[in-house]
């Protein structure tokens, strides 16, 4: 489901070249991309999401060769096949929490199907934020925002879910709770968690550690 091989990337001509380790993640498998700050975790995540293009190498995600896909197709592909949980929760502030959660459906497919609405209600219920469905994102606590962010990444039932530092801003108890929610809701999807959080390093057997270029 995720296949990375010989990936090299640099931000500009004068920037250092980043080499990333090869790895695979099968369909339905959960894995960890572990690395300290500056090892290129977020860059790799953006490469995996098709937001950056590598200089060379093989990059296949959700049956798609990202190097051979146009920008426009990548935009639509992200909306339908990927779920992304960002380190800091981003929302469209003019929309309600429920509308934010349904937005990927609207953007990728042009409409919000009725079954998505049903899933939205039950998901918000399971995550304990059903009462915040009609609130503005800015009215939510950090923990609620993180849960809403997970719900948004999973509502459209993506094949692959990427989570960027989902626990870095949380205390131990909340970090554990968020990881449990993420694993439970993404049980049938391929889950790749990018983190430097040592608290969750032993959570998955499939773990790839990123090292800085000078180490």
């Amino acid at each position: 489901m995720v296949h990375v091989e010989g990936i090299q990337f640099r931000y500009g001509k004068d920037s250092p070249k980043l080499d990333f380790p090869d790895f695979r993640c099968a369909a339905g498998e959960h894995m960890l991309l572990l690395g300290d700050s500056g090892t290129g975790k977020t860059t790799l995540l953006h490469l995996l999401c098709g937001m950056l293009r590598p200089e060379s190498g093989v990059l296949r995600v959700a049956d798609r060769d990202l190097c051979a896909t146009s920008d426009r197709d990548l935009d639509v592909w992200r909306g339908s096949e990927l779920g992304i949980v960002f380190q800091r929760s981003h929302f469209v502030q003019s929309l309600t929490v429920a509308e934010n959660l349904a937005l990927p459906h609207q953007l990728a497919r042009g409409h919000v199907p009725a079954n998505a609405i049903d899933r939205l209600s039950s998901m918000l219920d399971r995550l304990g934020i059903a009462h915040r469905a009609n609130a503005r994102p800015s009215e939510l606590s950090v923990g609620e925002q993180q849960r809403a962010s997970i719900a948004r990444a999973l509502l459209h039932q993506p094949k692959v879910v990427f989570a960027d530092e989902p626990t870095s801003a949380l205390d131990d108890r909340n970090a554990e709770a968020v990881m449990n929610i993420l694993e439970r809701e993404a049980a049938s999807a391929t889950l790749v968690v990018v983190t430097h959080d040592q608290r969750i390093k032993d959570r998955y057997s499939n773990c790839v550690t990123l090292k800085s270029a000078d180490s």
Binding site: C49, M51, R72, D75, V76, R78, G79, S80, L82, I84, F86, H90, F91, V92, Q93, L103, P104, L107, A108, R109, R152
Partner: peptide, 11 residues
């Protein structure tokens, strides 16, 4: 927000 929309299928 606009960048976020691009990650969710917005062209």
């Amino acid at each position: 927000e606009l960048a976020l929309m691009r990650t969710m299928g917005g062209t």
